[in-house]
Design a protein around this nucleic acid. Structure first.
Length: 221
DNA sequence: GACCAGGCACATC
DNA sequence: GATGTGCATGGT
C-alpha cells in the first residue's frame, strides 16, 4: 500500500509547521477540523507573535480563543492549549528539548493525561514534533483499512496502531510519510459512505461508529 | 441547508 | 465496552 501511494502521490512534506511548538499547536487545533481552518488560526497567532510557549503562557485564555476562532471549538481548544503550556512550564521549564528527552513511553502517558490530548493528538506530537517512531492512526486510516478488509471498522486505536507497528520498521520518517499519504488518499479517494448506505436496515455494509446515529436521526433517509 | 473536516471528554447504560 | 452528545468554524 505504501509503495502504491508513494508512486501515485509522491512526497507529502508533512507536518506543515515551521517549529516543533507550531506543530504541537496544529495537532491540537486540527482535532475534527479541516486544515484550512487551522491554517487561518495559526496565521492569526503568527501575526500576533504568539507561536512560542512563553507567548502562549503570557496571553489570556480569552484572547487566545479569539485568535484561534477560525479553527472551531475555539473555547475548548484555547483551554487545551493553555493546559498544555502549563504542563510544559511546570514539568519541563517551558523547554521542548527537555520534554522530548523524556523516554517516549513516559512522555506519551504524560500527554494522554492532559485534558484534550487523546491518542491521535499525543502520537502526532510524538511523531511530527519529536521524530519519535509511533504510528498515527486517524479516521482516514481506519476508513481505508476497513474498506480494504484489513481491520474491523470498530477496531480500537491501539489495535490499528499495533497492526502497523508490529509489521513495519520503527522509522519516524517512514511513519510520517505513510500517515500523510493515507490522509491524502482518504481526502481524495475514500469518502464517507452516503447516508443511504448507512441506513440501519443495511448495517451489514458498515458497522456502527460513534456519531453515525446522530447524523442519521437529524436527517433520516 | 446538509454534510464534512487529520478528536476528545463526559454522561449513561 | 458501547452509545449519545457537546464543542464551532468554514468549505462544498
Amino acid at each position: 500500500m505504501y509503495q502504491s501511494m508513494e508512486r501515485g502521490l509522491g512526497p507529502q512534506g508533512w507536518w506543515p509547521g515551521r517549529s516543533r511548538f507550531e506543530i504541537i499547536l496544529g495537532a491540537i487545533l486540527t482535532q475534527n477540523t479541516a486544515w484550512t481552518n487551522v491554517a487561518r488560526a495559526i496565521a492569526n497567532l503568527r501575526k500576533a507573535r504568539i507561536l512560542t510557549p512563553g507567548a502562549v503562557t503570557d496571553i489570556s485564555r480569552s484572547r487566545l480563543a479569539r485568535l484561534i476562532r477560525p479553527s472551531g471549538y475555539y473555547r475548548t481548544k484555547a483551554t487545551r492549549v493553555k493546559r498544555f503550556v502549563r504542563f510544559l512550564q511546570r514539568r519541563y521549564r517551558l523547554d521542548l528539548s527537555r520534554m522530548f528527552a523524556e523516554p517516549p513511553s513516559i512522555l506519551r502517558r504524560e500527554l494522554l493525561a492532559l485534558p484534550g490530548i487523546g491518542p491521535e493528538t499525543a502520537d502526532s506530537i510524538l511523531l511530527y514534533a519529536g521524530q519519535i517512531p509511533v504510528f498515527v492512526v486517524d479516521s482516514y486510516t481506519r476508513r481505508i483499512l476497513s474498506r480494504h478488509g484489513l481491520i474491523r471498522s470498530i477496531a480500537s486505536y491501539g489495535e490499528i496502531q499495533t497492526l502497523f507497528m508490529s509489521s513495519l520498521p520503527p522509522e519516524a520518517a517512514f511513519y510520517n510519510e505513510y500517515h500523510a499519504l493515507l490522509v491524502a488518499v482518504g481526502k481524495d479517494f475514500c469518502r464517507p459512505v452516503p447516508r443511504c448506505e448507512r441506513c440501519p436496515l443495511r448495517r451489514d455494509l458498515e458497522q456502527y461508529r460513534p456519531g453515525t446515529a446522530r447524523r442519521f436521526l437529524r436527517s433520516p433517509p
